[in-house]
Design a protein around this nucleic acid. Structure first.
Lengths: 85, 85
DNA sequence: TGAGTATTTAGACAATCTTCTAAATATTTT
DNA sequence: AAAATATTTAGAAGATTGTCTAAATACTCA
């Protein structure tokens, strides 16, 4: 849970998630959308991966990132505890 | 949104929210539940208040804290965007 | 009014985080 | 095999965060 909220606590990372909602992307294309160096984006992607919010699949020399909905469900469940009571 | 995720990105603060789920509490009683000084807890409460996750009402010399469900809804809505698509 | 209780504010310090540049690794293509 | 492209790793620097102690503020009650 800790690493999950940590991963979500950054505008760039949340924007990456929103971008991936519209379709998978490779690391370079993601980086191009931000005014930030590739290593920085790579680090953000690593945090999202650690939190299991995204899945990385190597495709040749590219790495394709996609959303992992399963973990979203876990967070949703955490919030629901407040609603049902 | 930024300040919201920031407020949620801390175990102590999330535990405070979970405690308040079971009923309102004043600052001192909240602090007693943690192995941490009162000023530290006061600071955590301040962040939760800034994020509108809790509401603080002064009652005499005490300050009573309660959950603010409205903002929970806002976060839920952010997550729902990923589910519906 | 003064003493006691509840809470916050101020300031400091160590730990963590975000970003950068430089270099390393992995893959493709010529 | 060498050059080019895609991505990550390593290490550093400045900013932010979590926690503490000491002091200030707010309120109650004798």
């Amino acid at each position: 849970m800790n690493i999950l909220f940590k991963a979500l606590n950054d505008t760039t990372r949340r924007e990456i998630l929103e971008m991936l909602k519209d379709g998978d992307m490779n690391a370079g294309d993601i980086a191009d959308k931000f005014n930030m160096t590739k290593p920085s984006i790579s680090h953000h992607l690593d945090l999202l991966k650690q939190a299991d919010l995204v899945i990385a699949v190597k495709k040749g020399q590219f790495v394709e990132y996609s959303l992992n909905m399963t973990v979203m469900d876990e967070i949703m469940a955490w919030f629901v505890q407040f609603k049902t009571q």
